[in-house]
Structures are given as C-alpha cells and as structure tokens.
Amino acid sequence: MSDCTNLEMRDALPDVARGALGGASLVAVESHLATCASCRAELAIVRTAHAALSRTPSVDTARIVAAVARSSAVRRDATAAVAQARRRRASRFATPTRRAWLAAASVVAIVGAAILGSTMDREPGSGGLPPVVVQTDEPVRAAPDPLEPTDPTPPRSAPRVELVMGGGVSDLADADLESLLDVLDDVDAELDVEPAVLLPVLEGDV
C-alpha cells in the first residue's frame, strides 16, 4: 500500500490518536479516513505507538526537587565565595599607597613598552648603531619605466652622499670623515634656514 500524499491529513493523525483534535478539523480528518486505507493503517500504528510510549515511568519527584535544591545551594555558596574573593582582591589596591605604587608600575611598564617598540621598529641588522654618512660614486637613477625603451647609456651625474645605518665613525676613512663633516655643516645651515625641507630627508632615511 502506497503512502497517502495528503500530508496535511497525515500530520493530523498523532493529534487524532491523542484525542487532541476536535471540531471541524476532526470532521475533516474522519472524512478523509473514511476513504483512505493508507491513513487508516497509519493511524493504527500511531495509536499503538502512543499507547506504548505514553506510559509514564515512575520517578521520585521529591528526590529530584531535593537534588535541585542541593545544587542551587552549592551554586549560591560558590557564587558568594567568588564574589568575596573578588572583593578581597579589589581591596588590596584600595589604600592610597597601593594605588600610587600601581600607578607608578603602570607608567614604568608603558615607558618600557614604548622604548622596546621603538627599538623593534628599526631595520633588522641596524643593531641600534648611529647613522653614518658615506659617499658613493654610483649615480642616482630613477626607476625604469616599463613602457619606455631602455637607454643603454647610463646617465651622468654628480657623486651622491647618502645616509646609511651601521658601522661607526672610527671605521671611516679620512675622506669619508671629511664628507661627513661637510654634510653636517650643510644640515646645520639648512636647519637654521628652512627646517621643512629637511624633514622629508630625515623621515625617508631613518
């Protein structure tokens, strides 16, 4: 026997079995059952299942209530203990002296973190050594435009001084040392005249 395709009627069968359907809905289902053998068979199964599964196993509700009460009491005690511990912890910093120590420790921690952060922001390998100016003979070249044909002849330009990190003043040759002094003189002069021009140079190199 194939299943009835009227799902609305089949969905109502458990309610019929439980005696929970009435009025026009019950009349409609009974009318359908009169002509549908599949639904009658299904209702018989549902009725048997309802009878078999509806028996209520005996449980001791007093014991359950007692267990709930015990558990609630334990939870209340635990909650109170946690609250008390939090209050104790909070009271440790309640005195003005302790609050002052805590504030001082916070300031030290923040300053330390800032110093550490600035050290780590430096280029790897710089090792925190002072900047040194060296002179190179290599000309400054713009990045090649991929759309322009490459010019095989390198452009001529003046030697350039650039600021690099690493090494020390004692490692410099005499000529380099003189170049460094010249650059420092120029920097001092420019600082007096136009500080705004110098800023991008420093930001780009450091």
Binding site: V59, D60, R63, I64, A67, V68, S71
Partner: peptide, 9 residues
C-alpha cells in the same frame, strides 16, 4: 531517574 534528575538540575 538519574537522567531526569540531571535534566532538572
């Protein structure tokens, strides 16, 4: 009964 009790607890 234990399961029912645990359910309520």
């Amino acid at each position: 009964e234990e399961v029912v009790q645990d359910t309520f607890v």
